[in-house]
Design a binder for these strands. Structure first.
Length: 306
DNA sequence: GTCCAGGATTCAG
DNA sequence: CTGAATCATGGA
């Protein structure tokens, strides 16, 4: 196993300051499943074919990549939304009139949606159903190690659909995927016949994108919303998982609401960057930092219809 | 041993 | 259409 030839640490110069806690939540808070905390406090991981590390230094975020990877800085800046488009969207969220969002946002200043590629997001969330974040990371790491292209230093890219479709059952089973192995293989077989699927999907409206995603085996409403948000940059997408259900029930008094109703509420209440608001709430809920509702909303609104 | 996990699918009503 | 059972695996 060759060792990694790292560049020196370099400043990232983001549009917004990112505290250590925010960086940790961003890299290991259930958006992406490819980053791990090294002993020196830096986050090391792979996105696309780029191996990189990022840390919060005294002067702000710093990063390093593999020597000779000339496109790595541009890729890293894009992945972390360095130009600050989300900083403006976050500012425009209704946090001034929403004390719950305000406290969640204050708990993780600078938190943003990682701009994963569609392939990474789809593989990650195909593994996500009924699993904890740590376990998802283990499954995805096993997939990469057994079926992905080596990048040096023991790091691997994610496997192609071809590699997944052609893998032995025993190999997939050894990744601890459980019943999700059939999801991955089924989706791999379908997308193998559409090599430009990501471009085609990216051209769709968010509603059509979601429908296309849900036609894939193992992709239901929640996973489709996550892939749209994290993999296709659809910031208005509002995934409703168990944590968001609990957050909206506890802090907003929306008890008894069904996931589709909560999704409707989220999009209407938070607007064009509802997905970013969702991530603040998700993170705060998981950390036990959400307040209880002062007022309870008595009855669910009529179910959304289209 | 029981219960649950960033749910999806299948089936009964 | 809605609600419940089932799915494979590991950790608390």
């Amino acid at each position: 196993m060759t060792s990694v030839q790292w560049t020196t640490w370099r400043p990232l110069r983001l549009a917004e300051d990112v505290p250590v806690a925010t960086l940790a939540e961003q890299m290991d808070g259930g958006q992406a499943f490819r980053w791990s905390l090294a002993s020196d406090g830096s986050w090391v991981g792979v996105f696309g074919r780029t191996l990189a590390a990022v840390r919060a230094g005294p002067q702000g975020l710093e990063w390093r990549g593999q020597k000779g990877a000339t496109q790595a800085e541009e890729a890293m800046r894009r992945y972390l939304d360095a130009e600050g488009a989300q900083a403006r969207l976050s500012e425009a969220l209704p946090w001034r009139s929403d004390s719950v969002l305000q406290s969640a946002r204050a708990a993780y200043p600078g938190l943003r949606i990682l701009r994963q590629d569609p392939h990474e997001a789809l593989i990650g969330f195909l593994c996500s159903s009924n699993k904890r974040i740590l376990q998802i990371r283990v499954m995805v790491a096993a997939l990469a190690a057994k079926l992905g292209e080596p990048l040096g230093g023991g790091f691997h890219a994610l496997p192609s659909w071809q590699a997944i479709a052609g893998a032995d059952d025993a190999v997939l089973r050894a990744c601890s995927l459980g019943y999700r192995a059939a999801y991955l293989r089924g989706t791999a077989k379908k997308l193998l016949a559409r090599p430009r699927w990501a471009e085609e999907f990216a051209a769709l409206t968010t509603a059509d994108l979601r429908e296309e995603l849900q036609s894939l085996p193992g992709v239901g409403p929640k996973v489709a919303a996550c892939v749209a948000l994290f993999g296709f940059g659809r910031l208005e997408s509002f995934p409703v998982d168990t944590w968001v259900v609990q957050a909206l029930a506890d802090a907003y008094g929306l008890r008894g609401w069904k996931p589709a109703q909560l999704e409707q509420f989220g999009k209407a209440h938070f607007g064009e960057a509802a997905g970013l608001a969702q991530q603040y709430l998700f993170s705060a809920a998981r950390a036990g930092q959400l307040p209880r509702a002062k007022v309870s909303v008595p009855s669910p609104r009529p179910r959304p219809r289209r």
